[in-house]
Every structure is written in C-alpha cells, then in structure tokens.
C-alpha cells in the first residue's frame, strides 16, 4: 500500500511563542527562521491560551516569568483545556532553578530551556519536540484513516465537516464540499475481481491527494464514494479542482485492465461567504449528493456544482489543463 498517510500530515508545523518580551520574539523569529516551522507569537498568557485554542499549534514555547498570568498559571490552563492538553510545551525561563524545572515538568511541560538561549541547543529541542508531536498526531490519525485508500474515514469526515462548517460561518469565509463516485465500479469488481477494484480505489485516492492542496481534506465516504472538504474555497474553485481530478482519473492506464479506463462523477456544493449559510452540515452532504446524482444523469464522467443557496455556479475554465 502506498504510504499516503503522511501526505496529509505534511504541512509546516505552527509553533506558538508566548513571552512578554519583544526581544525574545524578535530573537527567536530570526533564529528559528531556518527551521521548517511557522512561528506565531503572543505577549501574555491569557491571549496565548486563546490563540492556542484557535490555532492548535504543534508546539508551544512558554515563558515562565510574565506579568498578569505567569507561565505556571498559563501551563496549568493549557493542560486543563481539552483542546490544548496534548500540545507539547517547552518552558523558557531566565531563572535556572531546579525547583522551577521540576514544577514545570510536574505541570506537563515536555522540556525546559534556560535564557539566554544557547541556539543550537534550542533548535535541537524544538526539533525533537516537533518530531514527537508529529508521531503522536500520526498515531491518533491512524484511527481516523481508511486502510485501503489512505484517506480519512467516514467518522473523521463527520467530525471535521462540523468543525470546518462552524469555522466558515464564524469567519464568513468560503467553503465547499464534493461528493465523488466512481462510474460503473461494480462492473470492474465483477469483471476483473475484487483486487482490481481495490487497486482502483487506492489509485483514485492517489489522484485526489495529488490534486488537493494541503488545507483540503479527502475522505473515503464508503464503497466507491469519496468526499472532499475544501475550506477557503468557493464553489467555482472547487468545481475546477474536481474537473482536474476527473480528467486525470480518465487518463490512467490500469495495470490489471489496461484497456478499461475508469471515470468518476462529482457533485460540488459551496458558499462564497460562510456567514450567509443557514442550513445544517448534513444538508450540505444531501445537496452535494443531489448534484452527484444529476452528474450521473447527465451521462457520467461529469462534474455538477451549485451554491448552497441553490444558484448556479459560473464556470470559468481553469488555466492549467
């Protein structure tokens, strides 16, 4: 099986720095630039906690000595909050006391770095914590991944759709979803056997992953059905993306049946502005399904798209073939 599981994890990890000193922000911003991370920062514990909930960073660098809400208090709050509990925290401190170190580890910190920073050491510690964080994340994702396709499974989709839907509404951002179904899949299984059918499922999943951007979420919905969640994507863009998947799928030569190509149909639904949505996440799935059905009715190997409010999608040909 191709190792596609990691593909969906392969994004630049976000590291959140919480420190009241602008000097430290400036210093780490320069000194961690060479690492493949995206550094974001806050200057006090309270706002830092909110930012951590919002962004879900892969790692938090937390200063102990801050006015208002100090590092220990912030660390306790981070570990009490279910949404931030599992994020590793490296404590930064200008006080090199074992008492502070022990207290920080007791509260759940994974590491401790003393100021002034020794740079190579700091970088090594950041790297090792990120590695652990990625492995933990992968472990929890294993339970959410479909074994055959390597895409997320149905359970994950249901959860994630709700989350992305809420986020689109809150920020008034665009969002689209797509239901994809392989055309005449049953006849492939019947004619060439189930291993051939499995190879098609895995192969189409690869095509989907290849076309998606890192922020998109691809899931196997069941059988020969796939579903995509595309945050920050209007229905026109989602339509073009599905067209690329459709075109690419059609051109694949399959080792087990070189003369028989496989096509797919897709139904897309989306909104330009999340704040205008006034239906439930499950209504999105139904609407995408309806568009998929009309794509099938139109002769298959087709993509049909509409806005969630029912209006048609203006089709502009994507430049890339």
């Amino acid at each position: 099986m191709p190792d596609v599981n990691l593909t969906q994890l392969d994004t630049t990890p976000v590291v959140l720095l919480i420190d009241d000193s602008q000097f430290v922000h400036r210093l780490l911003d320069a000194r961690l630039r060479s690492e493949s991370i995206s550094l974001i920062g806050e200057h006090d514990g309270k706002v830092g906690l909110e930012r951590a909930i919002e962004e879900g960073p892969a790692l938090i660098l937390l200063d102990l000595d801050m006015p208002v809400m100090d590092g220990f208090e912030t660390l306790r709050a981070l570990k009490d909050e279910p949404r931030t509990r599992d994020i590793p925290v490296i404590v930064l401190s200008g006080m090199n006391s074992s008492q502070d170190k022990v207290a920080a580890f007791d509260l759940g910190a994974v590491d401790f770095v003393t100021k002034p920073f020794e740079l190579t050491e700091l970088r090594a510690r950041v790297r090792s914590s990120l590695k652990m964080s990625a492995l933990l994340q992968m472990l929890s994702q294993k339970a959410q991944i479909d074994g055959l396709s390597g895409l997320f499974n149905r359970t994950y989709f249901d959860e994630r759709l709700k989350g992305e839907y809420d986020r689109a509404i809150r920020h008034g951002h665009p969002m689209s979803i797509a239901m994809i179904d392989l055309d005449h899949f049953k006849s492939i299984n019947d004619t060439y056997g189930h291993p051939a059918g499995d190879a098609v499922i895995a192969g189409v999943a690869q095509v989907i992953l290849h076309e998606l951007r890192s922020s998109d979420i691809a899931c196997r919905y069941g059988g020969e059905e796939f579903v995509l969640i595309m945050p920050e994507t209007n229905p026109e863009q989602a339509y073009n993306l599905c067209q690329r998947i459709r075109e690419r799928c059609e051109t694949i030569t399959w080792a087990r049946h070189p003369t028989r190509s496989v096509t797919l149909s897709a139904g897309v639904v989306g909104a330009d502005d999340g704040s205008s949505i006034n239906c439930t996440p499950s209504a999105w799935v139904e609407m995408a399904d309806r568009n998929l059905y009309s794509a099938k009715q139109a002769g298959r190997n087709t993509v049909k798209a509409s806005h969630i409010n029912g209006s048609a999608v203006q089709i502009t040909q994507s430049k890339a073939g």
Partner: peptide, 8 residues
C-alpha cells in the same frame, strides 16, 4: 528582560 535577551 535585558538579562535574558541581551546575550542573544
């Protein structure tokens, strides 16, 4: 703050 930052 200066103690922690200046050396860096």
């Amino acid at each position: 703050q200066l103690k922690g930052a200046a050396p860096g």
